[in-house]
Design a protein around this nucleic acid. Sequence first.
DNA 1: TTGTACGCGTTATCAT
DNA 2: ATGATAACGCGTACAA
Lengths: 338, 338
Amino acid sequence: MSKGHRAVTLREVAEAAGVSIATASRACSKPELVTPETRELVAAAIERLGYRPNVIAQDLKRAATGVILVVVPSLSPYFLDIFRGVEAAAAELGYTALVGHSDRRGDREVAFVDRVRSRRADGIILATSVDSGGLHIARQPLPPIVVALDECGAGYLPSVSVDHEAAAFAATSHLLALGHRRIAHIAGAAGSSMSEHRLQGFRRALADAATPLDPELLFQGDFTVEAGERAMERFLMIPRRPTAVFAANDEMALGVLRACRRAGLKAPRDLSVVGFDDQRIAALTEPSLTTVGVPTMALGRQAMLQLGRILAGEAVPQKLVLPTKLTLRASTGPPPRP
Amino acid sequence: MSKGHRAVTLREVAEAAGVSIATASRACSKPELVTPETRELVAAAIERLGYRPNVIAQDLKRAATGVILVVVPSLSPYFLDIFRGVEAAAAELGYTALVGHSDRRGDREVAFVDRVRSRRADGIILATSVDSGGLHIARQPLPPIVVALDECGAGYLPSVSVDHEAAAFAATSHLLALGHRRIAHIAGAAGSSMSEHRLQGFRRALADAATPLDPELLFQGDFTVEAGERAMERFLMIPRRPTAVFAANDEMALGVLRACRRAGLKAPRDLSVVGFDDQRIAALTEPSLTTVGVPTMALGRQAMLQLGRILAGEAVPQKLVLPTKLTLRASTGPPPRP
DNA sequence: TTGTACGCGTTATCAT
DNA sequence: ATGATAACGCGTACAA
């Protein structure tokens, strides 16, 4: 790391303009406190020398950076939508939002939290599950932080989330209402509390309908297309095949559709498929995907607004839960009549 | 923006440990210059008080931040792959990479360049076309900057790119070799030099094969799925339909496939389709997409390595061109026999 | 090995 | 309205 080329400082501007450094500073940040003439003088010097204020020095003075870090587990469109929401709200509040991705590694999450501990950023929004790293960082007094999408750490941290359990319940109930009884579920990544909640909603819907759950119809996935394909391949080998599959996210549902097509099955005639998240791809698949819409942008937006309140020293509700919406498309229908 | 909660400073650590602030500083950054005992003493105080160094102050001293900004036009998987490449190389060099997105707006690009001008970052990688903003920022001496993917500003800036023209030539030649003569092209966003070069390659291939280009077979797109759909709908209305379509990116090619399906046409039997970029989606479409592979990660990686050299004060080649690779999949075949 | 003192570039508090 | 000066938190010559 080099020093870069010598930069022009405010002191040099002041000398060039023939004023004191204090006046030069005021001419920049509080022009109304300075006569129009000196303002002109300073402006000219700035232009001539190509001066740019050193924000690092400003930050040191202000003891704030105006930067908000958004940590996502992966750079997928889904999480980036959350980021967009944050970004919009941040702009309104005068902050700049930057993305970091943790690769689902707890140590990287902690590293980002450390970035704000060491004043490189004012606050942080975790659009990720810190189940593992959570305790680790909770030992120290925590910097301004809001969790988006998932609550975590047993509610230690303020969060903005959706009710994954209720949404999964609704999705499963939709399939039950269509007449399905053998419904399979592909769970998300193990250890993610989001996956856990979605699974619980699935279970509760079946229980409410007095429909027993065949353990063979439960597959441990990991949110990837490939996991969806493997799951469906497994389901196809079961003597009494499921008539519907509820995947814990859209990517895995896409995998299910692909495996079906390869096997010569047509959705929804032979098999109904439901996803989760309502990513952009959900409307583009063939057939288009019935799925649970998660208000990703709104999640990001609300998380940033909460963080803004915390940064302003206000008290905030510990939990904020946003509504989801089941979007019915072409991939679900009544079960086949055998 | 608030000041956050009062933070522990090195001075307090020094007092708590009963040493001078200089010794405390050394115990942190150069432990070998201090006796094991005092090292212990300071470490204990740090632990007890929960001290974290103020990186802003460190940066002010060093006159460097260790941060590299990567500016992308949109947060699409494509550009994020470039970012991943940058990130990996940055880690090796001891830098941290952060993403900013410009929304294809010149003023936002300039704003990011200003971030490094004002020392919030050491350097910047533009994975975007600054054709418009280019001149605007070129008036001042430029900070360390490398352009990835596209060369721009008439070669003012060091760049790492691919030969879009040659790649488009190869893709079109592939279709010609299969026997196609009526080949349509859907261009990328207007004003993007990348689109321009791809179009030129297309034209040259036709010219080399002495195949005239019907103006009706040229559609001005904008890199979106919808543009691909609209283009194909137009092509379907032409009396002498094209037998092949070369889209300037995969998303538009995907739109072509969708429009085909709706019209009851099957690729590649009725129509061959070629994309550009080889995004992840290209292998997942039905049929899978023949497309030009752009080494996105390598582009990012090389851009960062170049930037590292610039930052280290070394001279770098003005242009670095990486190879592309035409990947043949299922969407192309011989033209239909009428 | 450790402590003293200055500077990094800026803003803010006093005087004038 | 403007100028001198003290911070902000840290690193580092230099002296001890």
